[in-house]
Structures are given as C-alpha cells and as structure tokens.
Amino acid sequence: MSNYYEKFYGYTGFFPILKEVREVSHTIELRKLLSVLPNAGGSLFSRTGLVHGARLFILDDVVYNGHPTTAEHLEYEYLAVSLTFDGELEFLAEKLAEFGGEEFKSIFSHCYGYAKVELNAGSILKFLETGQVTTSFLYVEADGDLQETLRALLAQKLITEMLAKAQFLNTADKRALVLETADKIRSANLPLAGDFIEERN
C-alpha cells in the first residue's frame, strides 16, 4: 500500500459533489467546466512545477457487473482526482495555494468541504487529505523529476544538432562545441510543462 514510487507521489482522491437542488446541478456544471479547463502550459497543474500527470473525472455511479452480484448505487457523485507529482503532498498544497488561484476554486467549489477551505497551504492540504484514498500500487516508468525531464527534452534536441555538426570537426573544435552546447542547455528557458515543444518555439 503506497502513495509513493521512488521520488514520486501518487495522489488519489474522491470528492463528493454537492447535492443542492438547483436549476443546473453541480455535476453538470463541473463536467462542463472540466471539458473547457485549459491543460496546456500555464494551466493549473503546469503552474505547480511538480505535476507530471493529472486527471479528473466524475464518477456518477458504480458499475453493475451482472448476476450474481448485487446492483448498488452511490449516494453521491464524486470528483475523482489522480495526480502524479514530485515530492510530498505538503509541497503540492503549497504550490496550489500559491498558483492554484481561481481555477482550483472553480473546480472544488462544487464539492463538499470546499466552502471552508482558505487559499493557504495548510487548509488545502487538509482538504486534499480528507478526500484522499491511499493508492494501493503506483508505478512510474521514467525516473526524472519534472524540471530535469523538461530540461532533458530540450537538451536532447540541442545535443542532436551538436552531433550532426561535430561529425567533421577536429578534437579541439569538438571540445569547444560540447562546451558551447552545455552553455546553451544551461541558459535556455525551460520548456513550459504542459506544452508541446513546437508550440513554444
């Protein structure tokens, strides 16, 4: 039973959606919101600088798998949240408090318990912990943290260009080219998490 895989944290949460009687239900509003919520560079989870992958979906009801099982139904609809990120839940709560802003509020204000949440790390952490279900088994294939991965993806392209140029150079020039490429990698702006690389360049 583990929320961890090496240096990664796998957060799983279920947040009951408000059942208030109103013209448009919270579930419908939330689903509409999620369908248009930005997911590119600069979006909610991109801004945290920690999250590798995030997904949110609405669990309307449980699935009936036929005889001889008994059909049953959820009392509430749930917003299911899965996040894979670097570090600890406390760090993520800090980043969400700092960068979550209106987007975080617009999602979770449809759920029970959010009305009392303030936009500070402690309050967000408590909210996330209340909705948390322990991940039973987490698996992450690549071992780089987010910043290292983004830099490596950028570096891969620059190194490819360097090797194409280096083919016909003498040793001194190769050495200079290696150092020049290292400088370029160091000084380049990191790709923005959530973006396609060509969108940025």
Binding site: N39, V51, H52, G53, A142, G144, T149, A152, E198
Partner: peptide
C-alpha cells in the same frame, strides 16, 4: 473529464532517451 500531461508531445521512450 480533464487530462493534463506535463510533456504531452513525448512518449515514454522519448522521455527515457532524453534523460
């Protein structure tokens, strides 16, 4: 309903190779 990937243009092998 909502899906975010930090490096959407890169497959797992791209990421492992880049690292």
């Amino acid at each position: 309903d909502y899906y975010y990937m930090a490096y959407p243009g890169s497959a797992v092998n791209d990421v492992k190779n880049a690292l």
